[in-house]
């Protein structure tokens, strides 16, 4: 067992966890943040994607010890109160989700993608950049549309700030 201290969605949290605990299980089981999902056991599907220190990673492949001391953002920490993050809004507006299971991971990856590429995203780049996230429902068509839409919204939002 180790004492783990994290900043999760802006709040300091501490928890005792077995050293073999994966970050995703700490988030889900101990912190009750069940928006982060587990869809595979080979680090491929991306349903567990969260941000560690600002970068999208697969929380199913991070031991809690590795994350100790880090800043974590999960899907629950993306919106500001009742106001959806532009990426969340774009997924809703473009029907970028169906069953919703891969969606939190998709959104967390997509936010990181837009941060890294700025406004310079095109369809081909979005498709390549989504390599680490698997969706079974949408055929990705509307996910790609959502990300491109959100990239535009985030650019506008950044310009306004």
């Amino acid at each position: 067992m180790s004492a783990i201290k994290l900043t999760v969605n802006g709040k300091s949290v501490s928890a005792d966890a077995e050293d073999r605990t994966l970050l995703v299980h700490l988030l889900r089981d101990q912190l009750g943040l069940t928006g982060t999902h587990v869809g595979c056991d080979t680090s491929q599907c991306g349903a567990c994607t969260v941000h560690i220190d600002g970068r999208a990673v697969k929380s199913c492949t991070v031991l809690v010890g590795q994350a100790n001391g880090s800043k974590i953002t999960t899907i629950e920490g993306l919106s500001r109160g009742d106001e959806l993050h532009p990426m969340q809004a774009a997924f809703r507006d473009n029907h970028g989700l169906q069953c919703g299971y891969c969606t939190p991971g998709m959104i967390m990856s997509a936010v990181d993608m837009v941060h890294r590429h700025g406004g310079k995203l095109d369809e081909a780049t979005v498709r390549q950049e989504l390599e680490g996230n698997i969706c079974r429902c949408t055929g990705y068509h509307n996910i790609v549309k959502s990300v491109l839409d959100a990239a535009g919204r985030m650019k506008v939002a950044n310009a306004a700030e």
Binding site: L33, G35, L84, I107
Partner: peptide, 9 residues
């Protein structure tokens, strides 16, 4: 969708 995009499903 609101619950799904905010992780509240």
């Amino acid at each position: 969708d609101k619950r799904f995009v905010t992780g509240k499903g």
